[in-house]
Structure formats: C-alpha cells, structure tokens
C-alpha cells in the first residue's frame, strides 16, 4: 500500500511530509530540553552601569548566592554570555555602548532591567544626561523595580526570567 502511495513523482513531497511529522513529534521535547539547558546556565555580561551594581554584587555574595538558581556570576567573554542585567542608570554616553554590547552577544539573549533608573529613569527623571528607561535602546524581558532592588528582588526577577524562557519557543533560535 505504501508502494502505491509513494510513487517516484511524489517521493520528495512524501519525505518532506515525513520530516514535518517527525519534527512535530520531537519539537516539544526537544524545545523543552533546549530551554531546560538555557535556564540553568544564564551568564550575565559583566557590564556595570550605575549604583545598582552594588546590590548585584551582593546578590552573588554567600548570603544570597544567586548561583544556586543558575545565574552564573562569571567574568567571561561577551561572546559566551546570554543575559544582560542592566544595573541602573543608562546615561547618554553609556547608551551606545550598551547597544554595542547587546549586538555583539550571540542569540538567544535576554535582558533584565534592574532598578528604577533602568525602567523609567527613576530619581533622575529630569536629569539632562539620563535616558528615561532603557527600553528605547534594547528590548527588555523582565523589569526588577526598586532603588536599588534588594538582592531577593533581583533573584525573583531572575526566576521570572527562567519561567519566561521555559514558555518561550526554543526553535526560533535553533
């Protein structure tokens, strides 16, 4: 019966269909596996932009230890990173550099905006040199409010990001 279905003329179509079916079958588990891998090895870029970096440092201190949630505080190269934690105020001088850093990172990449300054400009809403939030420069995944956010808040922001990654389509980037 199969022989009747697969004639030399439509063999290609059939193989293509088969591929689609196969893909459908393993897409979910594969995506899940890929995302699972991403969740537990988020590497933040080492870019400090303002005073929130103090609490970012505190978050990886022994008391809060963000590493147990898979946010690896590592001073690696930009090309190995997949997370930007924007730690506070972005000034007009820093904004092009932030964009440059973001553009150089490989896909997939995620952004956490930490602190009131990174979200809206915060205390510096009327300063002449501060951007009113970073979402005009790079797309943001998670906002972590506070001035500065406590390390617990930052950790929760990271977990929210992990939740979000879990629900993301993995294949967009495969």
């Amino acid at each position: 019966m199969i022989k009747d279905l697969v004639t030399p003329e439509n063999a290609n179509v059939f193989v293509g269909k088969l591929g689609d079916i196969l893909e459908k079958a393993i897409d979910k588990p594969l995506g899940y596996a890929i995302n699972w891998g991403r969740i537990w090895s988020l590497w933040p870029v080492h870019i400090e932009t303002a005073c929130c970096s103090v609490e970012f440092g505190a978050a990886s201190s022994p008391r809060y230890d963000v590493e147990r949630f898979g946010i690896i505080e590592a001073f690696g190269s930009l090309r190995q990173c997949d997370l930007v934690v924007v730690q506070g105020t972005i000034t007009r001088k820093m904004a092009p550099r932030l964009r440059l850093v973001y553009d150089q990172m490989p896909e997939p990449k995620y952004v956490i905006a930490m602190g009131a300054c990174a979200i809206t400009g915060g205390l510096y809403f009327d300063s002449y040199n501060v951007l009113p939030g970073i979402d005009g420069v790079i797309p943001v995944d998670v906002y972590v409010p506070g001035c500065p956010p406590r390390p617990e808040t930052l950790i929760q922001g990271c977990m929210l990001l992990q939740e979000k990654i879990k629900r993301m389509k993995a294949r967009k980037f495969v």
Partner: peptide, 16 residues
Amino acid sequence: MHAASGEDQEDEGQEV
C-alpha cells in the same frame, strides 16, 4: 519580594 507578579502585566504598558 514586592517585584512579584505585577511585573509581567506591566511590561507592555511600560514599554509603550
């Protein structure tokens, strides 16, 4: 831990 749940909904509005 006040960052919790309000954030996700707020994203869109804030962005715009």
